[in-house]
Simulated assay, not measured.
Amino acid sequence: MSVAMALTNTLLAHSNKYAPGDDSHVKSDAPVPLSLRRRCTVETDSVAGIDVYTLTPKRGGADIEILYFHGGAYNAGMITPHWWVIRSLIAATGATVHVPSYLLAPEHTADEAYPSLDAVTDDVLLAAGSRRVVFAGDSAGGGIALAEAQRCRDRAGRNADHLVLFSPWVDVTMENPAAREVQKRDVSLNCDLLAAAGLWWAGDRDPSDPLISPANADLADLPPMTVVQGGRDVLAPDVIDLVGKVRDAGGSVHLEEAAEGFHVYVAGWWTPEARRALRLAAQGIRGDGK
């Protein structure tokens, strides 16, 4: 573990744990940082009733489109670290990034949110033409990215060329007993609060439903994946199980693990672990060697 990662874990351990079961979270999105506005042209459009941010590099752009779904336990808007991750991906790939500000729980459920998410996905895939398309996301957004790839496959239309999943939340039930063991070392998340947030998102569905917990869906015939996961994260056991299931189904997955990494540790761009993971994610986004 690097010194930077150790210090970050210590700082996080002395801050308040994120409480996704608390509906007092800010629903509005953090503004796009000035560093990104200097690098990119930023546009906001409405698609199927939700805002979609599109960030296009002013220089050094590539023929790559990323559809990025943010985390926040399905009940919080974008925070500044989400923009940090997006900034890193743009800097490494030259991709144009589309970020939907999707409907949030508890005011809305997955059944209410997915029609607009599907519409955004379809728009990005159609407009991309021959350009490479990548679905990416962190935490809850990683769950959405996986679910959208499954839905594209099931509709037999165009799908993403690659998936990039940062600490994805793929089973909202939080029933894996191994997660309770990891919680002793997790500096930011709590299993019970996550499970409560998952119930909000599920609405009338069982939280184990594949739409809500995409690890329970058919995992065959999905795009190649890059999965980044930290060991000090209660989601780690389910993510490791997901990787094994995808491989058993014949899929291609590159798993990058940091044993002492916190939840979505790629946001900690000052750590060598995050920089390595972001380089590997960029390789998948660009399709290097494929």
Rank of each mutant, 00 (worst) to 15 (best):
G230Y: 07
P115R: 01
N9P: 14
P177N: 07
S24M: 06
S167P: 08
E112M: 13
R155Y: 03
T10K: 15
M225T: 03
A140C: 07
V134S: 00
T109E: 14
L278C: 04
Y53F: 11
R87G: 15
D154H: 06
A178K: 11
A282N: 07
L280K: 13
N216A: 09
L165F: 07
R87P: 04
H162A: 13
A267M: 13
N176K: 11
S2I: 01
S24A: 14
A178N: 08
G137W: 01
M225L: 01
L163Y: 02
L255E: 00
D23G: 12
A156K: 15
D51Y: 02
T54I: 07
A127E: 06
T56E: 06
D288L: 07
V264S: 03
L103Q: 15
N159V: 14
V187K: 12
A282D: 02
A195Q: 10
G72P: 13
P168I: 00
Q150D: 01
M1N: 11
P31T: 06
H162M: 15
V97E: 14
A4D: 15
P177V: 05
E257G: 10
L189T: 02
A282C: 02
R38T: 01
V26N: 08
L242E: 11
E260V: 06
K245G: 08
V47Y: 00
D23N: 15
R151M: 08
A73Y: 04
P272W: 03
L163M: 11
I86M: 11
A73H: 04
W84D: 14
P177S: 11
G198A: 06
E112R: 03
V239M: 03
P207D: 12
S188D: 06
A281M: 08
S28V: 15
Y68F: 15
R132W: 07
S208P: 02
V32N: 00
M1R: 09
V266S: 01
L219K: 00
V124I: 11
I240A: 14
P115K: 04
L126C: 13
E273S: 09
C152S: 14
T121E: 03
Q229D: 04
G77N: 06
M174D: 07
L165T: 02
P223S: 05
T10P: 00
R153N: 05
H162E: 14
M225G: 10
R185W: 08
S15V: 00
R279W: 03
V3R: 05
I240H: 10
F262L: 09
W200E: 12
V187T: 13
N159P: 07
D192A: 12
T44P: 00
D218R: 01
Y18D: 15
D29I: 01
A195G: 08
A259L: 10
S208Q: 03
D241T: 10
A76V: 02
T8V: 15
A76D: 07
D118N: 13
L117E: 11
R87F: 07
Q183G: 04
G71W: 02
W269V: 13
F166P: 05
T173K: 03
V85R: 12
K290A: 13
R185I: 06
I66C: 06
D221R: 03
R39W: 01
